[in-house]
Computed example of a mutant assay.
Amino acid sequence: MQLAFWVRRAHKWIGLVIGVQALFWMISGLYMVVVPLEVIHGDHLAHVPTERLNPGGRRVPLGRLHEVYPGITSIRLKNLLGKEVYEIKQGKQANLVNAADGVKISPLDREHIVALAEAAYVGEGSIRGVEWVTKAPREVGSRPVPLWAVHYDEPGKTTLYFSPHTGDLVARRHELWRWFDFLWMFHIMDYEERENVNNTLLRTASITGLLFALSGAWLLFYSFTRRKTA
């Protein structure tokens, strides 16, 4: 049958084109189901300690804060290394202010960041370096810089990223996460930003894979029907 000949040929060439990408899909998919997501996120390496606020603590009145820091869009009271601080946001800009006297304490210096890292880190390594980051590495994505990067000397090569303006732990990165990110790039076929799951290349590959599966299914059905009529 002429149709079967062309379907078989198309199935073969489509398989050659899509086969490598299908292999990457299976390898990356296997990694994603074998390694738990909470491990990828680094939840086992660092946590954010929570401390209760002191209901009777002496604090600067909020009205005074609005006078000293005009244009405030939000205020949050929190604990930072055992001391109460206000996290003040003025548009996109954030700062930390000592809740007791209203003195600005951000950007946090290296000593503060090391103390925050030691309070958050629950792994088995020790700090091998603290880096002031002004150009965001790919692994922190679009998070605003500058950042403090605390690197640990352990097999997973853990790095904790802290905001100097809020003291928040904004990212946990380690080798399992980096492998996940690398395989995710192949999985979604976005080789630049590694974020766009609706890119043209992925759509094309998906449609090609569907054609491969449909042509294979047709050939299977055709082979059975041909045997019955033989």
Rank of each mutant, 00 (worst) to 15 (best):
R8F: 07
A10I: 07
A10G: 00
H11Q: 02
L16D: 00
G19S: 01
V20T: 13
L23K: 00
F24W: 14
M26N: 02
M26C: 12
M26P: 01
I27S: 02
V33Y: 10
V34K: 08
E38S: 15
I40Y: 10
G42L: 13
G42H: 13
D43V: 02
L45S: 06
P49N: 12
R52G: 11
L53H: 08
R59I: 01
R59M: 03
R59H: 07
E67W: 06
Y69T: 03
P70N: 12
E84P: 02
E84A: 03
V85N: 01
Y86D: 00
E87Y: 00
I88E: 02
Q93L: 09
A94V: 03
L96R: 09
L96K: 10
N98H: 04
K104W: 00
D109L: 00
I113K: 03
A117F: 13
A120K: 04
V122P: 07
G123M: 11
V130I: 12
V130M: 04
T134L: 05
K135P: 01
K135Y: 05
V140Q: 08
G141F: 01
R143W: 10
R143V: 13
P144Y: 09
W148D: 10
W148Y: 11
V150W: 10
D153G: 02
E154W: 03
P155W: 10
P155D: 09
K157R: 13
T159H: 02
F162T: 09
S163C: 08
S163D: 09
P164H: 06
D168N: 08
A171D: 15
R173F: 04
L176W: 13
D181M: 10
E192R: 14
V197I: 13
N199E: 05
T200H: 05
T204A: 14
I207K: 05
F212D: 06
L219S: 06
F221S: 07
A230T: 01
